[in-house]
Design a protein around this nucleic acid. Sequence first.
DNA 1: ATGAAAGCGCTAACAG
DNA 2: CTGTTAGCGCTTTCAT
Lengths: 340, 340
Amino acid sequence: LVTLSEVARAAGVSVLTVSNVLNDRGRVGEDTRVRVLQKVAETGYQIDLTARNLRRGRTDTVALIVPRFDHAYFGDLAGQLADAFAAHGRHLVVEQSGASLEGELAALSQARLRTYDGVILSAVGLRYADLDRISVATPIVLLGEQEVPARFDHVTMSNVEGARMATAHLLAAGARRIAVLGGADGADEVTMSTQRTAGWRAAHAEAGVEADETLVVRMEPLEADAARETAARLIAERADIDGMFAVTDQTAIGALAGLRDAGVDVPGRVQVIGFDDLHLGRHVSGGLSTVDPGTAWIAEQSVALLEARMSGADFAPRHLMSPARVVPRATTRSAGGREG
Amino acid sequence: LVTLSEVARAAGVSVLTVSNVLNDRGRVGEDTRVRVLQKVAETGYQIDLTARNLRRGRTDTVALIVPRFDHAYFGDLAGQLADAFAAHGRHLVVEQSGASLEGELAALSQARLRTYDGVILSAVGLRYADLDRISVATPIVLLGEQEVPARFDHVTMSNVEGARMATAHLLAAGARRIAVLGGADGADEVTMSTQRTAGWRAAHAEAGVEADETLVVRMEPLEADAARETAARLIAERADIDGMFAVTDQTAIGALAGLRDAGVDVPGRVQVIGFDDLHLGRHVSGGLSTVDPGTAWIAEQSVALLEARMSGADFAPRHLMSPARVVPRATTRSAGGREG
DNA sequence: ATGAAAGCGCTAACAG
DNA sequence: CTGTTAGCGCTTTCAT
């Protein structure tokens, strides 16, 4: 409502002077500075960031785009990214791609990306072709497990390795019939499910145990409700199951509930391990065993990468993979107990 | 990079024509329309939303501002709001106020609010004075339990009533020494903690049971880690406790973990009830008993209110309160078992 | 130390 | 049906 020029007129100076005062650009006398600031306060002037952004050609804002707001993993990730960006004096906003009207990456969304100085895009659920269609000037860092066009910076988790470690952990603790909740066999696709299932397979091969492919259980979507039903059904059908590797903590929590519904002792009869190291996982069932996919590392690296791009650094696209580690807690045997 | 006028020049028409084509404003011949669209595709033109926003004076975007990204309640809320706004053809972005450099509502934040057509501001943790300082043209709907300046639209939960119902539920199931995790006595402050503690008191009065004020346990912040330790310590110190009302589900989940650490049977020896009806609550400990504060209702009403304001409706500020109901699940006795 | 004027990329009013 | 022109509110040369 009240603009720079109005403040300028009120203070009897030019707009430049007001602008200089507000942006602390020093070239201003102390007396006028005071007078201007007073008028600013009096009029209740608020800068119009849209206008500033247009003029400056940047917004000082970065966006994180996630498939869904209500998945705990993305909440944890967003929190960590926000902290990291704040340290760089940058503002983070989060957008959801999943429920958008025009689908993932329609024309409008592309234009929206341009309104940010940089974007961290969680590509979970996006196809290679969708990503390949993206062409914006805005620096983008891709997150997620799938294959992405080589021209993008990409930070991902050690999905295969993490899953292998999780499964090896179960095998070492004596499990022999380990179901994969949310698994997928697809050799052609590279998704979170296929990668983590590959890790499950690798662990079996390594241990010399035959992997029972009928224990790879698809699940769509990967949510706790579905996991609960699936786990209960599965354990009723297959009494020989003595381990469950849930491809995410969210599904692991659902699976634990399903096993409890079925009266199955965990970790006595069936051991359960998840993937993600959700913060809340520490507190369910005495502590959910899981794989820490290095979320903190991912946040740091993504921010560093994006900051470098935003400051114009020119280097070949980087493809980084976080280190994973097993976090044994109460739902698997071997180590037992809680940690952290 | 490529602007409207460049497209216009390439197509041999004026910028207006290009603009008209892109905005489907009909006043354009079919042949030129095709030619323009072709040039748009060729050049890879992308509209500059910042420029459009400046010119139009609106952004078609609304913001939800939450204290923290990594609190499950806000994830759930954001998901529901996004759906509701999508139905109105509106875009939602989420910002975090907690970790901002300049604190909750410094000058910059105020300016940021102006960049949205409307704002839903979760006021949890903001003081009355902070809110009173807000003066923007942008329509704002406040969410949260505390007192807010009357000039704001405000949607809140039935905190006292919900807490009363939760406590009554415990009392009806035989609990007599009910601790309030995250409670607060402060008669002068109106916060989530004080409100919910007031409900706890009301239920006792109603049932003719003396409320033991030494069982009101402050906790800051309201997080699962702290709740776990607090609950374990509390039960060790006070063997007479037979019920816990945790002021949020997140703390309830922590409390359950703490009780489990201490080897306490739930709901046999101690019954536990939370508040929020987090989705994940269904799956912990066989189902966390809780209070559904009407999050869905809150989302609907906030959106309706904000849409009305954004379309210029002029009415007295509204102060709405959602209906709450107890959701008995496995951590309290009476009803027992799980539900939906 | 301050001012005048140009222009960021777009849309809207007014002509033709 | 299409073009010309004038800004939206700010920052930024270039002058003074």
